[in-house]
Simulated scan of single mutants.
Amino acid sequence: MTPPPRIRVLFDETAIARRNEELAQEVAKQKPENLLVVAVLKGSFMFAADLIRALHRAGLEPQVEFVHLSSYLDGTVSSGQVAILRDVESDVRGRDILLVDDILESGRTVAFAKDLLMARGAKRVLTAVLLEKPHKRAVTIDAEFVGFTCPDVFVVGYGMDVAHSYRQLPYVGVIDHMDTEPHLFDEQ
């Protein structure tokens, strides 16, 4: 598939699919019990769906939940505060949780979700992220499972967007010539 104009492929479909299978094997080695996958909406939906299928192929039988969190509120720059827009409906007490997010950058959203699930009595909360930008942390947190280390560029595709566009792309790409609408790219 040819990328749309202005999109440069960073991680292609094949690399993502291969890495999802590897991540599922890594998760399976942790021998999770009563596994609940909690996908952080919206950006992680494609990664979570592919990872869940890979977990099945790795011999796991996870249940699935979703949480929708936002630190952006009405703007395009993170407020530093995380709000719950849609909460997990299942009881997490005593369960192993795999928290799945698209990108670990500042760490605020993942740390908030992990702390929330632990406070609700989860036995263990492991985190899986498709991408991480390790030099952008605002809080101390690391993911147990990382798909790829990402350069400090604004990425789209594979669930991630800019102004609600490009989520449908089956790969992770970088928009070239972002100077056309710079306010859209203030922070990932």
Rank of each mutant, 00 (worst) to 15 (best):
C150M: 04
R108H: 15
G107A: 03
G147W: 03
G107M: 07
G147C: 06
V92G: 09
F154L: 12
L131C: 09
H135M: 11
D142M: 04
C150I: 06
C150S: 11
A128P: 00
L131M: 12
K133H: 04
A143C: 05
V125G: 06
T149C: 08
K136W: 02
L126A: 14
R120N: 06
V129K: 09
L117Q: 09
V146E: 12
P134K: 02
S106G: 14
F112M: 11
E144C: 03
R120S: 05
L98H: 05
K136S: 15
S106V: 12
F145K: 15
V110C: 08
D142P: 10
P134C: 00
T149P: 15
R137M: 06
F145Y: 07
V156G: 10
L99C: 07
T127N: 07
R124T: 10
P151D: 13
K114R: 15
E144P: 04
L98C: 02
F148L: 03
F145N: 15
L98T: 02
I103E: 01
L126K: 10
M118H: 10
L98P: 01
F112A: 13
T127P: 01
P151E: 13
R108P: 12
R120M: 05
M118L: 15
G157F: 14
L99Y: 07
L126E: 10
L99A: 06
A122Q: 06
E144N: 08
H135T: 15
P151K: 05
T140K: 13
A113Y: 00
G107F: 05
L116M: 13
D102T: 10
R108F: 11
V110R: 01
M118W: 08
G107T: 05
D101T: 06
D101F: 09
S106Y: 08
C150W: 03
T127Y: 07
L130S: 06
F148H: 11
R137F: 01
A138Q: 14
G94S: 11
V110F: 03
A122V: 02
V155E: 06
V155W: 03
G147M: 08
R93L: 01
Y158T: 09
D142V: 02
G159D: 02
F154G: 12
V129A: 06
R108L: 15
V156D: 10
V100R: 00
C150N: 07
Y158E: 08
P134V: 01
V139W: 04
L98Q: 03
V125K: 03
R95W: 01
M118V: 11
A138E: 14
L116P: 02
V129T: 11
V100S: 02
R93I: 01
C150T: 08
K123M: 10
